[in-house]
Simulated scan of single mutants.
Amino acid sequence: MSFRVRRVTTTRAGGVSKPPYATFNLGDHVGDDPAAVAANRRRLAAATGLGDSGLAWMNQVHSTEVAVVDHGGDTVDDTDGLVTTRPGLALVVVTADCVPVLMADARAGVVAAVHAGRVGAAGGIVVRALETMVDAGADAGDVSVLLGPAVSGRNYEVPEAMAAEVEEALPGSRTTTRRGTAGLDLRAGIAAQLRGLGVRAIDVDPRCTVEDRNLFSHRRDNPTGRLASLIWLERR
């Protein structure tokens, strides 16, 4: 049996949160009114048609921990990657500059959602998630990946030493910002890493969270809300 893969990324629009989280904030750890976040999450669950129990959330901590889940409706603590083989269960990653990585093997019926910030990406969170997918039956050559909206290299300025350190761990990520300073393009580094692991189908959402005012950006506006990126399987 093959599956249809669904991938969704939200914007700032359509929610009930008040400034500075206006309006569709889906992060429950950024200081927003918990009732507003809960209402926004219910809206997301309804819009996907999956319901509250059809969404699996993470308490992201910039780790390299990956969890395999078979049900939703609650939050997995202290992890930055989720993997499932259950159709109709959406894996959710929340971001506001970090890279949301949505991976799927539609033939095997395995999907993953990963929160890849600088620390996690350099530490190998994406590699760990792919390994966990393979353990669940996926084949790297059949995996397709979407790297969602994130801060672009032209807007991600870091010290020279940090750029060199990340480049050593994640080759292809070092770049130059629009100001001519040292920068990081994590999506480029992750894409290169995945290609080296045999993944061929890699798409990159070109939007930069810093530049696009329709998206949340921690670097541009702090405090601010979080976008959600989801992936799930549907039976054909």
Rank of each mutant, 00 (worst) to 15 (best):
V145P: 03
V110T: 13
H29D: 12
T23S: 13
L89E: 03
A164K: 13
G172L: 10
V37N: 05
Q193A: 08
R174N: 07
R42E: 11
H115T: 00
T48H: 06
L130D: 09
E211K: 09
A56S: 11
P19L: 13
D135R: 15
D135V: 15
S152H: 00
T48E: 07
G27W: 14
V204Q: 12
G180W: 01
G117Q: 11
A161R: 15
G15K: 04
A161P: 06
G109K: 00
A122W: 04
P20W: 04
A192N: 13
V94I: 11
G124P: 09
A122Y: 03
A67E: 14
E165F: 04
H218N: 05
R195D: 10
A169H: 02
N214M: 01
C98H: 08
I190M: 11
M162I: 08
T23Y: 05
M1P: 09
S53G: 01
H62G: 00
T75I: 15
D142N: 15
H115M: 01
L186M: 12
G14I: 04
T79M: 12
V83A: 12
D32H: 08
A116V: 02
A164V: 05
D32W: 03
A46R: 14
L82I: 14
A164N: 10
T10I: 07
V119Y: 01
K18H: 08
A38P: 04
S144V: 00
R226E: 10
E234M: 10
I125F: 10
G54V: 04
R220M: 09
T132V: 07
A169M: 09
A116Q: 04
R7L: 12
V83F: 07
E211F: 00
A36R: 06
G141R: 15
F216G: 02
I125H: 04
G117M: 03
A140L: 07
V5H: 02
A129V: 09
V76D: 06
T177Y: 00
R179T: 03
E167T: 10
H71P: 01
Y21F: 15
T84N: 04
I202S: 08
R174E: 03
A45L: 11
E157I: 08
R213L: 12
R200K: 09
D70I: 03
T75F: 12
A164P: 00
Q193R: 13
A108S: 13
A169G: 07
F216E: 04
N222P: 01
G27R: 11
A122E: 05
D203Q: 11
T95R: 13
F3H: 14
C208T: 11
V134W: 00
R107D: 11
